[in-house]
Design a protein around this nucleic acid. Structure first.
Lengths: 162, 162
DNA sequence: GAGTCTATATATAACAC
DNA sequence: TGTGTTATATATAGACT
């Protein structure tokens, strides 16, 4: 914007994009803090650098996100006069969607956990150390992975497929 | 900051604070979107107005949160745990927000329903037609209303209170 | 309240180191 | 990479509608 007006589009140049990211991240967080201070609200920002492999960044902190959630539960129910059934339906829809997301997160976590256990076993760890409740799920996961390996072997044996 | 330089502190004046909140919220979200577009990152903001009884607000949309989660899947296992907690916290925050709204809607609907029944009875409708499960709540509501009437009668009888 | 206006405070792109 | 400098684009406080 200064010196040159910048087109609002993804910056292809790596160095320029990184520089802009750092500059603007700083500026944006300052804005968030000002809003927070001036207006007496709690604000929380999370950035996921989807193209790089760096960690997601959260402000002011992950702990704050936690606390915001706890505080929320303590809120007194306020008077709302215009609520309708239609609105209730919409809210239920939102809850359902969010719960679905939550389920996905949990499933993904479970899969990660089991994958790690699988690799530990492939690396020589004793099966005795695996929790009983993990074994069944682990079998399924290993089956899935074996299937992938199987397909690759087929492709190696039949190079014309490639 | 323009016209006058504003001191970075909580704005006591209600109207001014509300106006500033709306103005700056808009500006801040624009900054977040620009950062997102220019640098190819996913960003998410939650604002929790701790002093008022309004609901927390989240940006950008549910759809974006979905996509953020999908991107997240592709990351190596070691980096997952940190990200997951933040993501999960945000989703839980949204669920809590929606559930709180839902509770309000239900309470309000229930109260309106009972109030209608109460007026129908005052209008001569038989008590036999009232559902068993409504009777208890109805009594409480009527008690509340009678209490209000009682106080008004007292005030009429003792005008010096006014 | 929600817009519009306008003077001024800030944010920041390019450059240089 | 991370600074600092500077010219310019933006954001926005207060006033008015």
């Amino acid at each position: 914007m200064p010196r040159n007006k910048v087109k609002l589009a993804y910056i292809e140049n790596d160095a320029a994009r990184k520089a802009t990211f750092n500059r603007r991240k700083k500026g944006m967080l300052k804005k968030v803090n000002e809003l927070s201070t001036l207006c007496g609200v709690e604000a929380c920002v999370v950035i996921y650098p989807s193209t790089s492999n760096s960690q997601p960044e959260a402000w002011p902190s992950t702990a704050t996100a936690h606390r915001m959630f706890s505080d929320f539960k303590a809120l007194p129910a306020a008077e709302q006069s215009n609520r309708t059934m239609t609105q209730e339906d919409l809210i239920r829809l939102r809850i359902a969607k969010a719960e679905e997301q939550l389920k996905k997160v949990n499933e993904e976590n479970r899969k990660m956990e089991l994958t790690q256990i699988m690799f530990q076993i492939l690396d020589g760890k004793s099966l005795n150390s695996v929790k009983k409740e993990d074994l069944n799920d682990l079998c399924m996961l290993i089956d899935q992975n074996l299937h992938g390996i199987d397909i690759r072997l087929q492709m190696l044996n039949e190079p014309h497929i490639l």
